[in-house]
Every structure is written in structure tokens, then in C-alpha cells.
């Protein structure tokens, strides 16, 4: 085969190892979610998910070997997503800093809860 410079052929064992790692990480993330770590739970969950996502991206999607431009495109997507999240949350998380009455959202309970026979939807 003369075209190995464009088609990297990943050895079979890498696929199998990566898939096993993904399975193990899935089990770990389920197990950890049952332990109460306070605010760290979400960080651990996202951390494990990110490792899994990177394994998929680098090995299943070949980013490790492929042209670097694909990695650049993928990173660009993540960059724009981060910008979107961070700048929006600068607003949504800091509305009460100067005017406390602006904190939170406008209406805590949607109207349909008033008509539902419920004892548990109070804030």
C-alpha cells in the first residue's frame, strides 16, 4: 500500500484498549456519582466525561495521527463554546452583585403549578 502518508492505519489493539478504557471509565463515573463529594461531584463527572471524549476524538476519530488542521477545527469549536458559556454566565451569575433585587429570574413558579394539586412544588 503506497498511500500510508494519508491513511494512517491504526493497529487493532489500540481500538480494543480504548474501548475497554471507555467502559471502565463509564463504570467509574457511575460509581463515583453515588458518593457525595459536594460540589466536586460535577467536576469529577465532567472530568471523566472529558477524558472519555478525548479518547474518542484522538483514537476513534484519528486526531492523534491525522492532519493537525482537524485538531485545530475541533479546538476552535471548543473555544467558541467556552466563550459562549463564560460570557453568558458572567451575566446570569452576577445579576445580584450591585442590585440584589435583580438576582434570580423573574417568576419562580410557572402558572400551571397553581392548578396542580400538589404539596411539594413550593420554593
Amino acid at each position: 500500500m503506497n498511500n500510508t502518508h494519508t491513511h494512517h492505519i491504526t493497529p487493532l489493539w489500540i481500538y480494543l484498549v480504548v474501548a475497554s478504557a471507555l467502559m471502565v471509565l463509564t463504570i467509574i463515573t457511575v460509581a463515583v456519582s453515588n458518593i457525595d463529594l459536594g460540589g466536586f461531584n460535577v467536576l469529577v463527572a465532567l472530568g471523566i466525561a472529558s477524558i472519555k471524549a478525548l479518547l474518542v476524538a484522538f483514537f476513534f476519530m484519528q486526531l492523534w495521527w491525522d492532519k493537525k488542521i482537524y485538531l485545530v477545527i475541533f479546538s476552535t469549536a471548543m473555544l467558541f463554546l467556552t466563550i459562549f458559556l463564560v460570557l453568558t454566565m458572567f451575566d446570569t451569575q452576577t445579576r445580584g452583585y450591585i442590585n440584589p433585587e435583580m438576582d434570580g429570574r423573574i417568576k419562580p413558579n410557572a402558572p400551571m403549578y397553581d392548578t396542580m394539586e400538589s404539596t411539594s412544588t413550593t420554593h
Binding site: L87, F90, D91, Y97, I98, M102
Partner: peptide, 10 residues
């Protein structure tokens, strides 16, 4: 009602 902090950054 955007927060003043966010407005300043923007």
C-alpha cells in the same frame, strides 16, 4: 437586566 459586571466586560 444584564448584570452590570457583564455589561462592563462587554
Amino acid at each position: 437586566t444584564q448584570s452590570v459586571l457583564a455589561s462592563t466586560i462587554f
